[in-house]
Design a binder for these strands. Structure first.
Lengths: 116, 116
DNA sequence: CTGTATCCACCTTGATACTG
DNA sequence: CAGTATCAAGGTGGATACAG
């Protein structure tokens, strides 16, 4: 009985935690952007090329969100024309294991659902 | 040079895999539902209580999606009134490590962004 | 190059009422 | 209990043009 109660608490707690994470990562593109930056510092135009399908507007918007949530740092380099680089914060780096898991599952998924 | 090339390929591959995963888990509620079912078989009304904020319509719709993607199994038990149970497929179970990572990060996030 | 502003079509979601 | 049907509202994202 106490065990069942405990299970239930753990369940609710997990759902809450996952919800909190998704609040920050919820956009259509954020996880892909984190995946891209997981491979190192990138320029705006590089991310644009990495993340197939995203528009410039969306990339700006998502990056701004992520900066506000302390996931990425933004550096403006005063070349001409301007260069801007983004990188994961140490905090954002902690998402890399999530990304790894997700990528592994995504590969499995492609093999399972779509034919190989 | 070959290393840089290799890095870039790995990056694109990861982003694609993550995108595939997100195609299936993309809804506002799907990850929370997986988290709930990760703790065992549940009835429709139990999930409804677990996942704070979801409406009945959305729960039905998301579950139907997930069933189509082989993430959950649906069992109708012929009581009166009807009982319906959902559970993760073995395939869906493979998402549990993703959920765990995400929950850990979500807890960290709450402590980091919101004050503890 | 790295954005911002505007306009707009579409989609997702919630509320409510209803069915077996 | 476990859904479905309908409607309305707001959010989401694309295209385009423009700016620093």
């Amino acid at each position: 009985m106490a065990e069942i109660k405990h299970e239930h608490e753990a369940c609710k707690k997990t759902i809450l935690a996952v919800h909190d994470a998704m609040d920050v990562l919820g956009g259509k593109w954020k996880i892909s952007i984190v995946a891209s930056l997981g491979f190192g510092k990138k320029r705006y135009s590089e991310i644009l090329k990495d993340v197939t399908g995203i528009s410039g507007k969306m990339l700006s918007r998502e990056l701004k969100d992520m900066e506000a949530n302390l996931l990425v740092n933004r550096y403006v380099i005063d070349t001409k024309p301007v260069t801007v680089e983004y990188e994961l914060t140490p905090y954002g780096h902690k998402l890399k294991s999530v990304i790894k898991n997700l990528a592994d599952w995504g590969n499995l998924h492609r093999k399972t659902i779509m034919g190989k």
